Computed example of a mutant assay.
Amino acid sequence: MRPVEQYRAASIAVLAGWLSRHPDEETRWRLIAEFLEEHRHEPREERLRLLSPEPPSVGDSRWDVFLAALAEHLAAKDGQAGPAWAETRRLRQFWFPFNTPAARVDAFVHSPASFRRRGVFIHPQELEVA
């Protein structure tokens, strides 16, 4: 009989690996939603541990910066600073992942600080899991 493997929530580094293997946007957003769902059910200490390993590049600087902003955003929700690896990741040109005129305005106004300061504009609702 094989030993039963214990469930482990994915780290942000594991998420980066998933994103690099799935370049289509729809799948990437589903993977992010799955990560967020797993993350929110973990104890606080574990949530912070899941953000600490520096993720490898996804192969697209926009998504690499998105992961840094996400890590800082999630850490801040737990009253902590983001991981050190996230500090240097920034875009030179703004990115609106949901790029319709209405979504751009909404994201520009409401984007969380960790995303906005890196040049990624996303409405906080896009980071919520039902």
Rank of each mutant, 00 (worst) to 15 (best):
W18N: 11
W18P: 02
W18D: 02
L19D: 00
L19W: 01
L19A: 10
L19T: 02
L19E: 04
S20M: 09
R21F: 13
R21Y: 12
H22C: 15
H22Y: 11
P23L: 02
P23T: 04
D24A: 07
D24R: 15
D24Q: 13
E25F: 15
E26A: 11
E26T: 10
T27S: 11
T27K: 08
T27D: 01
R28W: 01
R28K: 01
W29L: 12
W29F: 15
W29V: 11
W29H: 15
R30E: 11
R30W: 04
L31Y: 10
L31E: 05
L31N: 06
I32K: 04
E34T: 15
F35A: 08
F35K: 13
F35G: 08
L36H: 05
E37I: 06
E37N: 13
E37R: 10
E37Y: 14
E38I: 13
E38T: 09
H39K: 06
H39V: 08
R40E: 10
R40L: 12
R40H: 05
R40N: 08
H41Q: 15
H41D: 15
E42N: 08
E42G: 08
E42H: 09
E42S: 11
E42V: 10
P43R: 08
P43F: 07
P43I: 03
P43L: 07
R44H: 00
E45K: 07
E46C: 01
E46K: 12
E46A: 05
R47C: 01
R47K: 14
R47D: 00
L48T: 01
L48A: 06
L48R: 03
L48N: 03
R49L: 05
R49E: 04
R49D: 07
L50E: 10
L50N: 08
L50Y: 01
L51D: 05
S52M: 13
S52G: 06
E54K: 02
E54W: 05
E54G: 07
E54I: 07
P55N: 09
P55C: 08
P56C: 13
P56V: 03
P56T: 12
S57C: 02
S57K: 00
S57E: 04
S57R: 02
V58Y: 00
V58H: 01
D60F: 03
S61R: 11
R62F: 06
R62C: 05
D64T: 06
D64V: 10
V65G: 03
V65Q: 00
V65A: 02
F66S: 02
F66V: 03
L67C: 03
L67K: 00
L67E: 04
A68M: 05
A69Q: 11
A71N: 00
E72H: 12
E72Q: 13
E72G: 14
H73A: 13
L74H: 02
L74A: 03
A75T: 07
K77G: 13
K77Y: 02
K77R: 15
K77L: 13
D78N: 11
G79M: 06
G79T: 09
G79Q: 07
Q80C: 10
Q80N: 09
A81S: 12
A81W: 08
A81G: 10
G82P: 07
G82F: 06
G82N: 06
P83I: 15
P83R: 04
A84S: 15
A84I: 14
A84V: 15
W85C: 07
W85I: 10
W85P: 02
A86F: 05
A86R: 04
